[in-house]
Computed example of a mutant assay.
Amino acid sequence: MSTLTEAPEAAAARETPARRRPRVDRLPYLLLLPCLAIIAVLLLWPLGQVVAMSFYKLNNVRQLRGTREWPWVGLDNYVQILGDPFFLRVLRNTVLFAAANVVLTMILGTLVGLLLNRLGKRMATFVASCVMLAWATPALTGTIVWKWIFDDTSGLVTWLFNKLPDGLSTALFGRSDWTGYGWFNSPLLFFAILTLVVVWHSFPFIAVSVLAGLKSVPSELHEAARVDGAGPWRVFWSVTFPMLRPVFGILVVLSTIWDFKVFTQQFVLAGGTQDRTTFMLSIYSYAEAFSPPPKYGLGAAIAVILTLILLLVTGIYVRMVLRQEEDA
């Protein structure tokens, strides 16, 4: 009897590892196929086309339509762009603008998120709904409103400055009549207004994301820190920030990507691509590709360089996250 009962166990022990290999469930991968197909069609294929165009000399719409041959130039477009001093100026504008906007957006969004977390439920819901209106407003619509606010004749800012006493306005700014003043003519003023528009449109998402993260932080930790005598700044830096470090990391990467790719706001405020002193990479790529005479290959090369920069930023963030997980 013992032999009969032990036989199945002995047979199971003699099974090869290949027969005991766990079965792979292919259903999740099959369910992901439609999403992957959509991503490939809407993202990967256009990206591949842009990369391919950057290696050709394309100066005619007929070439894009396939009715004319694409002359192969290899890396000449990249050599021309990277060797142009104007590209370095545009790159500097983009980096400085993105850095300033990321810092301001993160600070303002975090402060608003902390405020929402301290308000009552009804008031927090009301304020969050009002704040999200700015984020939900299309970039084109919001920028048109801001352009009217800074209009040189009937804008709100021009009207307010004209209401200042002449002596005070002259003493502070050197002029008393602001009608006809070009707010967008100076590169410094232009970037200041553009920063205002971008931060206004971006900080609500940061605020709501920080608020969601704060809801996951146990209140006992904050109470314990206050009992130990920690002030608001110490509580945030020693308790809140470490708990929300992954959230802040993702928000910084997303803000960096968005601010590097700012196009609509700049195009509308500048009124096109005439002012090259305020160019950044996105509008520089557009201007090279579509301004007469069109140079689609050069524009594609600039777009590829911008994509590589953003991939580098994302890769650095992913490496930091992985290193933090290993240290933990």
Rank of each mutant, 00 (worst) to 15 (best):
G83F: 10
W233I: 12
L43I: 09
V157S: 00
F173T: 12
W148Y: 13
Q266S: 12
L211M: 07
G272Y: 12
A230W: 00
N93V: 06
P204I: 02
L104T: 13
P246T: 04
V217G: 00
T264W: 11
N101V: 08
T314I: 09
W135N: 04
E223R: 03
M1G: 09
P293R: 14
V318W: 15
L312G: 15
L251V: 12
E15N: 06
F150D: 02
D84E: 08
Y286T: 03
P292N: 11
P204H: 07
P218D: 01
V112C: 04
L33N: 14
L111H: 01
D327V: 14
T273V: 14
Q266M: 14
H222L: 03
K295C: 11
A10R: 15
P242Q: 12
V90C: 01
P218C: 04
S219K: 07
T105W: 00
A128V: 05
Q324L: 12
I283P: 11
P8K: 12
I283A: 06
L111G: 14
L311M: 15
L269D: 00
I257W: 01
Q266D: 04
W159A: 09
T273I: 07
A18M: 14
L116C: 02
V253H: 00
A287T: 13
W148A: 10
G315Y: 11
T141N: 11
